[in-house]
């Protein structure tokens, strides 16, 4: 059998694939966090809980209403986005004039409440969710076996991440958003309804989390604690990429997934710690993150 640095090649590629899949979810989630932090100045601790809700919406649609994966791929983000809009309008928007800490505490509390409610009704063991018919099976790539659904996860995540990047960096709407990050007051004085834009931004960013959730449902089990497991790593990724940096969060998300995969192959014990070691090193060498700019 072919080996690379003493590791059987299929094992190495298998771990890299798992890393890339995790990275695809990291990228989607850290992208949303970066957008929310940039525009609303809120550290959204509820992001993991909303991601979990995305998966549960998909599971619920299938089990109770018989609605399958493909419609759920659109419906779950819409439902989660709508919930986000309600959260922003009724609670978050009252905290913008206060310190970051209040937004963090509010969303942290919301995450605890949401996850607590789901644990109460569904326990922590998780619900199964099968991949759609069209994406069952897989491809033999010669050097490894690629399950079709996992390939789809990577493609879908890249498309959505790149689309979001285009939207923010290359459109007029994105220019309003970038300008509002710097000087919300002046953008409002140009005639833009900035509070409405902030509400829609939050809705959109948590819809990304909902999208990641339904995308994850066939990969991980649908469980109330699936977001908790992910969110701390995702925060570390946002810090490494640079708070508020769109490109930074996407690239770092995918990169950290790969680094974790490599670490799992060569030094399994360190695989869940490596991201925090990287975060510490980045914070020492580049306090604003790999792609970050100092805030004025």
């Amino acid at each position: 059998m072919q080996t690379i640095l003493g590791i059987p090649a299929p094992l190495l590629f298998g771990q890299l694939l798992i890393g890339l899949i995790n990275g695809a979810f990291y990228a989607l989630l850290s992208l949303g966090l970066a957008v929310i932090f940039g525009v609303l100045n809120v550290i959204n601790f509820a992001h993991g809980a909303l991601y979990m809700m995305g998966a549960f919406v998909g599971w619920f649609l299938l089990t109770h209403l018989g609605i399958g994966y493909w419609p759920a791929l659109v419906l779950a983000p819409l439902v989660v986005g709508a919930i986000g809009i309600v959260i922003e309008r009724t609670m978050l928007s009252r905290l913008y004039d206060l310190d970051h800490l209040y937004g963090l505490l509010l969303t942290f509390g919301l995450a605890l409440i949401i996850e607590g409610l789901f644990i109460n009704y569904y326990g922590v063991s998780g619900q199964p969710y099968a991949p759609p018919q069209a994406l069952q099976g897989g491809y033999n790539l010669g050097f490894m076996f690629l399950p079709a659904y996992r390939g789809w996860v990577i493609v879908a995540s890249l498309i959505v991440c790149f689309g979001t990047w285009l939207l923010i960096e290359r459109t007029q709407l994105g220019a309003y958003l970038r300008a509002a990050v710097e000087r919300p007051e002046l953008v409002r004085a140009f005639g833009i309804n900035v509070p409405l834009m902030m509400t829609l931004t939050y809705g959109f960013a948590v819809a990304l989390a909902g999208f990641a959730g339904i995308l994850a449902a066939p990969v991980y089990t649908v469980s109330p604690i699936m977001g908790q497991n992910l969110i701390i790593v995702v925060f570390a990724i946002v810090v490494i990429g640079g708070l508020g940096s769109i490109l930074g969060s996407i690239v770092t998300g995918l990169g950290i997934g790969l680094v974790e995969g490599l670490t799992r192959t060569f030094w399994p014990e360190a695989s869940s710690t490596v991201v925090f070691v990287i975060m510490a090193i980045v914070l020492i060498l580049r306090p604003h993150g790999l792609f970050g700019r100092p805030r004025e």
């Binding site: 007029q172 220019a175 309003y176 970038r178 300008a179 990050v181 710097e182 000087r183 002046l186 953008v187 409002r188 004085a189 140009f190 005639g191 833009i192 700019r293 004025e296």
Partner: peptide
């Protein structure tokens, strides 16, 4: 602003994350 009053602030308020042209085209 929508009524047709425009404001040019003392600190000029040019956006660093926008190009010159994006800055020019920003106000609706």
């Amino acid at each position: 602003a929508r009524r047709g009053i425009a404001y040019c602030p003392e600190e000029r308020g040019i956006f660093a994350s926008l190009t010159v042209e994006e800055n020019l085209m920003l106000p609706p």
